[in-house]
Structure formats: C-alpha cells, structure tokens
C-alpha cells in the first residue's frame, strides 16, 4: 500500500462529481441494493474518459469513495494494465485516497472483466465497469421489450437461447458475461467476467455494485445473496479450467492469461490476477518458468 499525498485540483469537487450528481447516484445505488439484480436507470454524466472505458464504474466509485478508503483498480485481473493505471491515478488525484494492489487491503475494488482470486471479505465493495447491463440485449435489442421481460419475469427467451446452444455445441456456450439469476428473481449480466468468476458472486461476503455509464444503469448484488448461473439439470453450469499451471507461480486453480512467446506456436499461461500471482511468488511458490528473466524485474516497464 502506498500512502498518498495527493493534491486535490481546486477546479473540481472532491471525487470529481458535484454533490447533486453524487446524491442522484447514491439514491440509485440504494435502490439497486434494495432490488438485487434490477437495473436502475440513472442520470449518467459525461465523464472525462470515453464511454466504454469505465464511465459507469468511475461514477459509482466517485459516489461512494472517501478519504479513508483504500482503492484498488484492475483491468483483466491486472493492476498494471493501462486503463487500470489511468483510472487509479484519477482517483488518487481527485479523491485523495490511498491505493493498493493487495486485494485483502482494499475497501473498494474497481474492476473490468475479473473478480480477484483472493476471497473477498465483509465491508469490501466491488465496483464493476459494465459495457452492456442488459443480459437479454443480444436476444432482444429493444429496451421496451427487455424491460417488460424483467418486469414480468419472462425469461423464456434466455432459456431458449441456452437450449439452442446445447443443440448446436453439445453444451452451453458462453465464456464471459454468462447470465445469472439473482435471488431467484432478476436475470442479470455479471459484466464480461469469465464464467469462471460467476461462483464468486454467490453468497459473497462483499457488496457488488455494477455501473454502466453509456447505458445509464446501476445494479447491485448485496452480500450473502443467491446468485445462480443459468443451466439445465442435464447440462450443468461449468467453469473454465486449464491443464497448465501458471508459468510463474505454479498455481493450478486460477484463471489464466495465455501469453504467446514466439511465432512458432509456443505459449505459456500465467495468472490473470497479477496481484495474486505476485503474492504467491513472494511466498515462495514457483512455476515451471520461474527463475527466468520474467520475474526478476516485476516492476520494469516496457513500452509496447
């Protein structure tokens, strides 16, 4: 954890958003928590980063964050991806907040596409950047239609789509953004996390807040809430697994990034959660490729 002595730019309010906007977002968050899995429309503001680059997650974080928080920001599981660095720097500057890469130390974890490997704990808040909040959107493009489907709990279209994929592929397709039913009522997109991460939402200790800026929706999964990935009795939900262990830390159970090593088809797999992998290596775990140049300079920056 690096203690921050960040200066707040005077031109903007604390955490960038004005207080009226924060109140509006806070009210939406409370309704989202009270109706788990339901997408609350909110007056999403234009942010200084482009739509699709985390505007929803940034607005949610800006509405909840305070100087006592410890903030972690990941993209694809990693703290050092460009957009995660950029967003973390934004909050370190405008919210005067300490940042960390350690999942266990964070009070707010903003993420794009992953849930960390380390178990989440009570009091932690996950903030998801959501490109498309509507799980039914690719089955039905019209908001007027999908809103009615949620209102009357008509999810036949979703089950039909899963069934069709079973017929076509012999299993349920879909690797990321796999739909879930929250508290047996609302169908919800968990954002494009791999389905590997879906089980972490079920009865989680943490509060999960989802922000879709461009689509102007906020939704939530409170702690200790049933979150069920859709499946069929004879085609049960299953998650990804790898034959290979992490090349760096040797972990056999984490979600992996595939790294192409050359143009002859050689590749390796490493943990997508960079903080988790780093901690395992620090604790003495070593994968088959450990000891090479790759882990001797973990902080080195290499320009692409």
């Amino acid at each position: 954890m690096n203690a921050q002595q960040n200066r707040k730019p005077e031109a903007y309010n604390y955490a960038y958003l004005d207080e009226q906007t924060k109140r509006m977002i806070r009210r939406a968050i409370l309704k989202a928590v009270a109706i788990p899995g339901y997408q609350v429309p909110f007056g999403s503001r234009e942010m200084p980063v482009p739509y699709g680059w985390g505007t929803g997650g940034i607005q949610v974080t800006a509405a909840i964050i305070g100087p006592d928080d410890v903030y972690k920001c990941i993209d694809q599981g990693a703290d050092d991806t460009t957009n995660a660095v950029s967003i973390r720097r934004f909050f370190a500057r405008v919210a005067d907040v300490a940042t960390t890469e350690r999942t266990q130390d964070a009070t707010i974890i903003q993420t794009r596409h992953r849930i960390p490997e380390a178990p989440l704990t009570q009091g932690q808040i996950m903030v998801y950047q959501v490109p498309q909040p509507e799980p039914l959107r690719f089955l039905e493009p019209r908001e007027t239609e999908t809103r009615a489907m949620h209102a009357y709990e008509e999810y036949g279209l979703q089950y039909l789509s899963l069934y069709e994929s079973v017929s076509a592929f012999g299993r349920i397709a879909g690797g990321a953004g796999y739909p879930v039913l929250v508290d047996e009522r609302y169908l919800m997109s968990p954002s494009p996390i791999p389905k590997f991460d879906n089980p972490k939402l079920h009865q989680s200790e943490a509060l999960h807040l989802f922000g879709a800026g461009r689509e102007k929706r906020i939704y939530a999964v409170p702690p200790h809430t049933d979150v069920r990935s859709l499946d069929f009795e004879d085609y049960p939900f299953e998650v990804q697994s790898w034959d290979e262990v992490c090349g760096l830390c040797g972990c056999g159970t984490s979600y992996k990034d595939e790294v192409i090593l050359d143009d002859e088809g050689n590749r390796m797999f490493v943990c997508s959660d960079s903080a988790y992998c780093g901690e395992r290596r620090a604790a003495g775990h070593a994968g088959p490729l450990a000891g090479h140049a790759l882990d001797s300079t973990p902080q080195e920056e290499t320009l692409p």
């Binding site: 309010n13 604390y14 955490a15 207080e19 924060k22 109140r23 806070r26 968050i29 409370l30 928590v33 509405a63 909840i64 964050i65 305070g66 100087p67 509060l207």
Partner: peptide
C-alpha cells in the same frame, strides 16, 4: 462533502 460521504456509506 465528507460528512455526506460517510453517512451515505453508513446507509449503504
């Protein structure tokens, strides 16, 4: 500003 943030987190 800080007071509203702390109270909100309590209500949340």
């Amino acid at each position: 500003v800080p007071a509203a943030q702390r109270v909100f987190r309590g209500v949340l």
